[in-house]
Design a protein around this nucleic acid. Structure first.
Lengths: 171, 171
DNA sequence: AAAATCTTTCAGTAATTTTTGAAAGTTCGA
DNA sequence: TCGAACTTTCAAAAATTACTGAAAGATTTT
């Protein structure tokens, strides 16, 4: 396969993949484009590369920056802004975990606490099922919270080393 | 908060949460409804509970069964089919991991292998960046594949026990 | 300080995804 | 084997989400 074809393929696949995880297709495609680009790209190059409008490119680049996956790069002598993506996929994964945790898990935990305090007779089957389920989710979430914090803090070496060995050794 | 209100809240939250992860809102809401229901529900009760159509209920219940999160339950003497959800959230998480792995990671690995074999001069910066990035993603995916397999196989005790302790100890 | 170059915004439009509901299909009991 | 009870399907409609492009806003150069 030629490079251009392979790039197009990868961009399409990454876009499809993102869609499954609640990320908009274009955002994932821009990410893919930057991931395989040797140099930072300008907004115009992104527009050109994916055949999208200026507004769309701008909005999704901003979103990628909000996620901490893409950065603005200033090139000396150039008026334009350029964009580049972190290419180390372990760092990318850690960053995504960090953001999702912040946006979702950290929001959900107080809500679960509130829900677990529902009024009613605890001998009532309906009440018991509800509180049991909520508490089960709550414990899970709190554990996930701690675990993910550790993963976020962990450096790559530990991540690749200890964790992997732990799991591998259990096989 | 009263039970009915708390249930409604939880259903809405779980639906919103699902949406962020590429799961359709109704599917997540049906899941939530069944999670907090003490007894299995009929299709009519699901329709009624969420104010959705028969077609919608049917389609999303089937999807939940495909994901292995919901099961048909036959109640003696009843003509209707009833549905119930696994309530142990650790089991739910494991099932979701298992399915997503099958549907996505296992699909992606061969594609990455193919892409990593792109033709071209390896001294060409564009080619090198592409193959390096793809190989990085490939290694990550293969590691994730192994790790997730172990997690899927792990029994709950180990999951709650060793892993939790491991991470907790690192804090 | 005007012009040129580049970035951001957002109302309207387009594309995609989800839902409905009626018809077709199935199963079961009499 | 008929009919009632229930389930499934799917084309059309609705709802949601994403995109465009032109205008407004910035910033830099001349």
């Amino acid at each position: 396969m030629q490079l251009a074809e392979a790039k197009a393929q990868f961009i399409a696949d990454w876009g499809r993949f993102g869609t499954n995880w609640g990320i908009n297709r274009t955002m994932a495609q821009i990410h893919a484009l930057l991931l395989v680009s040797p140099d930072p790209l300008s907004a115009d190059e992104v527009m050109e590369g994916l055949a999208i409008s200026r507004g769309n490119a701008n909005m999704n680049l901003r979103e990628l920056m909000d996620w901490g996956l893409v950065q603005k790069v200033l090139i000396p002598g150039e008026r334009k802004e350029f964009f580049s993506a972190e290419k180390d996929i372990w760092k990318v994964a850690r960053q995504i975990i960090k953001e999702r945790k912040k946006r979702e898990l950290d929001q959900m935990i107080p809500v679960l606490k509130e829900l677990s305090e529902v009024e009613g007779d605890k001998k009532d089957k309906a009440v018991k099922t509800f509180t049991d389920t909520i508490n089960n989710i709550r414990k899970f979430s709190e554990q996930a919270d701690k675990t993910l914090d550790t993963m976020i803090k962990a450096d790559e070496h530990w991540f690749l080393g200890s964790l992997v060995k732990l799991f591998a050794g259990k096989n």
